[in-house]
Design a protein around this nucleic acid. Structure first.
Length: 290
DNA sequence: CTGGCTCCCTGAATGC
DNA sequence: TGCATTCAGGGAGCCA
């Protein structure tokens, strides 16, 4: 399940291959992939738009076009990649954007690559959104706030400080785990990185947010940034049907490790369900009353 | 405000 | 072997 590190990894990979290219046409193989606007409008508006930037906000891809913002959320099983235009479509392709062969000729001061990569920059390519479970969504909007306006802070940004986290925890009265999964509280954490962060901070997922002490909030803040940065360094985690080449799954301390020893103390990791989400804890390291 | 539950989907795993 | 059932999971939406 792509979370912040996986989305960041994909965005970094796509950026140099997309920026400067122009969208020739849009194929919607599963129209409900579109959150907004209607398929007809989408095809019309996106045609001819130049891709100016590729970034990420929380778990959303942000593709900045000449006049619009294109957002993609992978949800459970989505994937986004470049293929040659004539490549055979795959079973779960949901949307295909055909692109111009290469970046527009270098503009003022930009250095064009000396040797374009094989098959890219020369031939026509396409950006493919593939999504087995059809939970992923695409938005095309003028105003980014329509999509990401209510997201919480970026956990790796400067404005997200330990103090800020402590204060927002105090302002709520919720169980830690569901609160950390709430994208309006903090943007980018999913089930994996939340479990990993709580374990590193030695906090039980059921602790009430306003019961967290200042030092614990600092530990949680550090743990969140640590697991996310480590995830990015490992190119994300490859799980289930979403294989990305990342290997952070080999560094999980509790997630998906029910019954296996906690790497800190050796106690068997337990799995519980909190807020309808499977949750992994070390019962020894993470105590509710501490 | 909080939390519980359902829905959206598919394919892997499990049950018989 | 083969068919049917169960389950996971991000996020929106609904209800208490």
């Amino acid at each position: 399940m792509p979370e912040l590190p996986e989305v960041e990894t994909i965005a970094r990979k796509l950026r140099p291959e997309l920026v400067g290219k122009r969208i020739l046409k849009a194929d919607l193989l599963w129209p409900r992939t579109l959150a907004t606007p209607t398929p007809a409008k989408f095809r019309k508006l996106v045609k001819g738009q130049e891709i100016q930037a590729v970034s990420r906000r929380g778990k959303y891809f942000v593709i900045q076009l000449s006049h619009y913002h294109l957002f993609v959320h992978l949800r459970m099983s989505g994937d986004l990649y470049i293929k040659e235009e004539n490549a055979t479509p795959e079973k779960h392709d949901r949307m295909i954007l055909s692109l111009t062969p290469g970046p527009s000729p270098a503009r003022g001061g930009e250095n064009p690559p000396l040797r374009p990569r094989e098959g890219l920059g020369v031939r026509e390519t396409k950006l493919v959104f593939n999504d087995t479970r059809k939970f992923g969504r695409v938005w095309l909007v003028r105003d980014p706030d329509e999509v990401v306006g209510r997201l919480g802070p970026e956990p790796l940004s400067e404005e997200f400080t330990a103090q800020a986290l402590y204060e927002s925890l105090q302002a709520r009265h919720r169980q830690l785990k569901p609160l950390l999964l709430d994208q309006s509280f903090l943007a980018g954490l999913g089930n994996i990185y939340t479990d990993e962060a709580l374990h590193r901070a030695r906090l039980h997922p059921l602790i009430r947010s306003d019961a967290v002490k200042r030092e614990q909030a600092e530990a949680l803040w550090a743990a969140i940034r640590e697991v996310l940065q480590e995830g990015i360094r490992h190119n994300g985690a490859s799980l289930d049907w979403v294989y990305r080449g990342g290997d952070f799954q080999n560094h999980f301390r509790v997630y998906d490790r029910k019954g296996q020893p906690c790497p800190v103390c050796g106690t068997a990791v337990e799995r519980l369900v909190i807020g309808q989400r499977s949750t992994h804890v070390c019962p020894d390291c993470q105590r509710i009353g501490s």
